[in-house]
Design a protein around this nucleic acid. Structure first.
Lengths: 229, 229
DNA sequence: ACCTGAACACCGTTCAAGT
DNA sequence: ACCTGAACACCGTTCAAGT
């Protein structure tokens, strides 16, 4: 009696399976090779089947950014990455180094994240942890806020306008901050402080001021190196 | 007698005209709208005509990166941007701010530059000027080299592995440095020093070390702010 | 020399039809 | 509910043909 014929039915598709396959494909052949048809081929289905799990290609790329930033956040939050660290700088430093190793595995990530208009929500746990570390280390919320901006390119590979809200309605912003409170208490507090400080201005973050702050940080650090050489 | 019919012949195409139109189109509608056919439409010619001036779409994007980085370099080198500056930090700071205003006009630029594997040659005059300013300000070449890396994201919008040569042949690298000498004396010297320091290692730049250097610069700067608050 | 029409292989996406 | 075949409009690119 012959062995039962190998069953041709695959594991059913799902958003997670589609996104995982997209990451594998982008890693292997770059974002250029990531087409709906090609991705479907890797999953042994037709291109049209993907549309049951992602709205369109743009949503696929959004999901991809979400996954890769989630991976970065996970690596940064791994307790092993920061075990034995004493001061806040050491913890933050090791987290940035962990982020870098993930980015190294996905060289297409910075370009992808930069092309999205908003950072994916999977950054929030990472920012929350960083702000917590800094605040517990004796930094105030305004300084922690600036630090997140300054470290943006070390964490995600490029400088970004963060938290730039689609809403310029102050009350809506306040409510958004409240929504964060249960799970992201430090971020919620940081946002509250920022909303208060930015009263009357256009955005919650003054990107020009953030840019100049980071710039001075770097230049002053270089000057210190020059003097002590 | 009727007025002469309006002559339908346009200014002949050229690489410069193609690239200029590409910048205008990307500014107006984003990189996504930049297709060969659409670009041709803007230039009132057929898509195939573009292939006489750029090899293919990839070459078009290379050219676009070249143009926009050239624009950044020009803005940074404008004497008006740095008039009246006293110390090297002030000069470098103002140049970075000038770069930012250009980037603001072309929000697609960082993503585009990041996607290219090499920075376009139009960065060299900018780097040359920055190194010159720093060296004249009392910085050594190794520090100036690190500064270029640290300031990468302030100048071009993202962190980049710079000068990563396709060749890992030390002699070829030395020769490349010599080629720079007539027009870019400081960069040539910087490259020579880097080649010497990197003797036996894989690349001319230790990107891990550069990353950690920038990271420490930022963290130490933040710590200084924390202490004096 | 410079431009173009027709053609090819490949995109993303819609829709009506299958199970 | 989940998947798909056929179809549409659009993409980059080649090539032989025009001027």
């Amino acid at each position: 009696m012959p062995a039962p014929a190998p069953r041709a039915d695959r594991e059913p598709l799902s958003r997670a399976r589609v996104l995982d396959a997209a990451v594998v494909l982008a890693d292997a052949e770059g974002l250029g090779a990531l087409t709906m048809r090609r991705l479907a081929g890797e999953l042994r289905c037709e291109a049209m089947s993907l549309y049951h799990h992602v709205a369109d290609k743009n949503a696929l790329l959004d999901g991809l950014a979400e996954v890769v930033v989630g991976e970065i956040a996970e690596a940064c939050l791994d307790p092993g990455a920061t075990a034995g660290s004493l001061d806040w700088r050491d913890v933050v430093r090791r987290r940035c180094l962990a982020a870098r190793t993930v980015m190294h595995r996905h060289p297409w990530a910075p370009g992808l994240i930069a092309a999205r208009s908003q950072p994916p929500p999977t950054v929030y746990p990472l920012f929350e942890a960083l702000v917590a570390t800094m605040v517990e280390g004796g930094c105030g919320y305004p300084l922690a806020h600036r630090a997140i901006h300054s470290l943006g390119s070390m964490l995600l590979g490029f400088t970004q306008e963060l938290f730039e809200p689609a809403v310029d309605d102050e009350q809506a912003r306040d409510e958004a901050a409240q929504d964060l409170a249960p799970t992201m208490p430090h971020l919620a507090h940081l946002a509250e402080v920022a909303v208060h400080e930015a009263r009357g201005s256009l955005g919650i973050c003054d990107t020009q001021a953030e840019f100049e702050f980071t710039l001075r940080l770097i230049l002053d650090g270089l000057e210190a190196h020059r003097i002590t050489r």
